[in-house]
Amino acid sequence: MGYGMVIDQQLCVGCAACTIACKIENNTPVGFNWCDKITRTSGKFPAVRYEYISTMCNHCDNAPCVAACPTQAMYKDRQTGLTLHDTNKCIGCKACIVSCPYGVISFNWERPHQHWAQRDRLAEGCFSPREMLEESGGEGSPHGNPERGTTYPVVRPAGSVEKCTFCDHRLVKGLAPACVDACPSGARQFGDIDDPNSEVSKLVARHGGKGLREELGTRPRVIYIRDYKPQRRFEPARPAGENQGA
């Protein structure tokens, strides 16, 4: 058993709904995107090519961040294959950030969401950020998702790194990661990539596909299939009748 994600580049429309869903679900601070993007523009007019590659932690089987972490704060969960992080063990050395070849780990230099503690009101009669926080009862920010706190702190402490967990708090409830559910084109598929009969494994078997920077030997669990080609716009990812959901 090991979770993995398949991203169909032919279906991805670059809307960034995944990024927004991730931010809302995981209460990430300003400037941190666990789910983000790489954009590339290449070629020469009129043969210009633009690529939008949605990125997140690749939950590598051979994770450099796990090998580099001196305190086992970054670890592999043997049951799920996820690369997870324990903020209680994190000493803030940032070795994981330097070691990660994908640039998907962020460091809390300061207490996150601290602007929500401000008492100044923008105008008379308005709520101050602090009052909004108290009114909503949220943790850290009015948007803090308490369900996030079941497996990872809703507000990660200052001096600690943070990263995508494939929404492990949703997985234990049988739900897919927030980015997968938010994708309007069904470009993201999630499941047990170690099971050859799973949807994600079938997609990889059918279309091939590869992870980012595979040449480094990290064995990422996020696989990209089908580079976007306009001429196959109407070609389905799966044979007719196959389940489109995760």
């Binding site: 400037g31 995107n33 983000d36 993007k37 070849p101 640039g103």
Partner: peptide, 8 residues
């Protein structure tokens, strides 16, 4: 900058 950090 590696990966998505190049965007930032």
């Amino acid at each position: 900058s590696l990966g998505q950090t190049a965007h930032w």
